[in-house]
Structures are given as structure tokens and as C-alpha cells.
Amino acid sequence: MERVTGVNIVPHFCRIEDKPLDFYNDFNIIALGLDSVEARSYINAVACSFLEYDENDNPKEETIKPMVDGGTEGFKGHARVIIPGKTPCFECTIWLFPPQVKFPLCTLAETPRTAAHCIEYAHLIKWDEVHGGKAFDPDDPDQMQWVYKEAVKRAELFGIPGVTYSLTQGVVKNIIPAIASTNAIISAACALETLKIVSGCSKTLSNYLTYNGVEGLHTKVTEFVKDKDCLVCGPGVLIELDTSCTLQKFIEQLEEHPKLHLSKASVTHEGKNLYMQAPPVLEEMTRSNLLLSLFELMGKVPSGTVHATGTSTKNDKKTSGSRKLRVAFKGVNGMTDMDTAGGA
């Protein structure tokens, strides 16, 4: 604000999950400077949860919340533009993100959780503490042994299983540092795309830019396609219910649903909290709804959209996620009308 007059910057120091959905809905565009697949998945689900479809399954323009995402690893990076409902969302192309290998230093120093964290602690922090100044040589078996032993000690201290010599090798050799120039390039691409979306001064990136500066310089634009069955940016998973189904039963169904596997779900309808798992105050306030029928809670409409936020488990991995669900009540008139009755 000091450097550029007329701009208003409001910092929020909190977890992205701590903000209510409305907070994100107030912006025209969301630019992502996130460092993990989980965080991207979360914001993506939030932005897509605002998206509504008309009766012909076309996205309603006014509900589209564009996102601009970027990320770097060493000399490589990507920038992308996500127009929910029109271009693939983060979840449509989740396969682009293989499991991550780098860890924040604070995790290593304070809250190790996995064997790899213990190894990186020994390699990045302990090594310099003890050998101050001497460069670590990953090809020296004695030095690797030293890191391995320190990692084992650390793992024992924290009761973490799984540190092996071979894993030590794998983790240590895969460290990818952040590089100022790559960050500059990717952030510039993201800023430019954001500006273009806001101003309409030029067409936007369609839709995924990859950049690699290791050998010479390579940039490539790929036009990925939307997954029409995407659970996150699609029209939503259709769930048919009896009018007598209670909110509690509904929440239990989400956990067993083959496409969702959403456990401990909080449920909102048109911005109203039907049931919240946390914080305790809200949980207590909404607990009584659990025994009421969802049909009643939704104002006895034949069908409508609810948002469920919870923990989804995929391949033994837990991620917090928000899902859009199209609920239709059996035997109620107008059931074929998928208008969300929202937008009020």
C-alpha cells in the first residue's frame, strides 16, 4: 500500500480452512500461492462449491469463481487458470500431482510425522549443526550412514516407524530447493493471468502452462479437458432420499457413499448451517437438527443443493474436502426439476 497507492491489502493470519465459505465468495478471483496438493484441493472445492448449473447443466456465469494457480519446484513450475464449470478444475487433473517429496522446515524441526521427516531433519538440520559448514555428499556412504543413524534416533524419539537406509537415500537425494527466479517467473505468469481475467485486456491462458529451466528453457501450454463426471466441479452428486430421512442418517450415508467416502461431514444449505462438527459452540447449536428430516430442514423443496464438508478417504489418504450434493426427495412433485432453489 505504501508502494502502490490505491491498492487495499488485508492480511488474514489463519488456516485457509478456518474461513467460512462466504469469505471466499466475496472475491472475484482467487489466486493460489499454496504449497500442497491438499491445500489446493481444499480451495478448489470451495470455489467450485459456489458454482451452480442451470436446468441444461450449463454453468451459471454469475456463480463462476475463477482461480489462478501456480507452483514451483527448483527450476520447474506451472501456472494455470481454472474457470470452474468451463475448464478443468484441480480435481479433474489431480493425476498431474504425484505424491510430494519436499517438506516445510518447520515440520522437520517441530512436528515430524513420517519417516521421511526424520530423515530430512537429520540431513538438513542436524548435519549442519554437527558438521557446521561441511557440505553433505549424498554419494558418500559413510555420510549417508551418519544421516541414517541420526534419523533413526529421531524416529525413536518421536516413535515414528519406517526409517530405513534405502528410504534415507531416496529422501535425501530428492530435495528440491525453491529458487528465486523460478518463483518470479511463475508468480509473474499468475499475476498476468489474473490481470487479464480482471481487465479482459487479452485472452487468458488456456489452460495449463509448464515451465522447465533445467536444460535451456522450455515452456509448454497444454489444454487439458474437463472431467465431466468430476465430483467437485460437475453439477454435483445426485442423492435420492425419502422425505423421512433424518440429517443424521444423511450424514451416515455420505460416509458409505461409494463416490464420496465423506466422514464427519458438516452440512450447509443455502449458507445456513444444518449441522457443524466444529467448533463446539456451533456443534451444540446445530445438534438438535440431527434428528429432524432433511426434507424439513431444506424447507420442503422437492430438490436442492447442499454442501458437505468433511474428511474424505482415498487410497488410505485422508484429505479435508467440500462436496456439492444434489438432493432429490422421492415422491415429491417437481422432482425432475433440478433447479437448486438457491440464489435467494
Binding site: A180, S181, A188, A191, G213, G216
Partner: peptide, 23 residues
């Protein structure tokens, strides 16, 4: 934004030339 992109690329090449690392 364009200047930052161009500057990012240019600085990266400068670093490669000075450190004699990477191509």
C-alpha cells in the same frame, strides 16, 4: 507482470552463466 516474467528468465540465465551450473 511481463517485466517480472522476463526478469525472472533473464536472472535465471545470469545465475547459470555465473555459477557454470545447469545449461
Amino acid at each position: 507482470a511481463v517485466a517480472t516474467f522476463i526478469g525472472g528468465i533473464a536472472s535465471q540465465e545470469v545465475i547459470k552463466l555465473i555459477t557454470k551450473q545447469f545449461i
